[in-house]
């Protein structure tokens, strides 16, 4: 981050949950979770989404719960 290796400007990613002040990530909130499961239905990594570690953890838990209840897919084939 601090090193000036990249010349071009890159937009700083912000954790969505910090920005929107969502503290309880509900496994029933499919719309919210879907923002973090791209086409292949894998969980979007932190380095892409910018989610902070404190929120990625419950997010991951919520996604896995929702998958178990068939609210969101494990894979898309």
């Amino acid at each position: 981050m601090g090193r000036a290796r990249k010349v071009f400007f890159r937009r700083r990613k912000v954790c969505k949950f910090c920005a929107d002040k969502i503290d309880y990530i509900d496994y029933k909130d499919v719309k919210l979770l879907q923002q973090f499961i791209p086409e292949r239905s894998k969980i979007l990594p932190r380095r892409i989404s910018g989610t902070c570690a404190n929120h990625q953890r419950p997010l991951q838990q919520a996604i896995k719960r929702a998958r178990h209840l068939a609210l969101i897919p494990f894979t898309t084939d």
Binding site: R67, A70, L71, I72, P73, F74
Partner: peptide
């Protein structure tokens, strides 16, 4: 009734 994300 709700659509399942995958078949069970």
């Amino acid at each position: 009734r709700r659509k399942l994300a995958y078949t069970i």
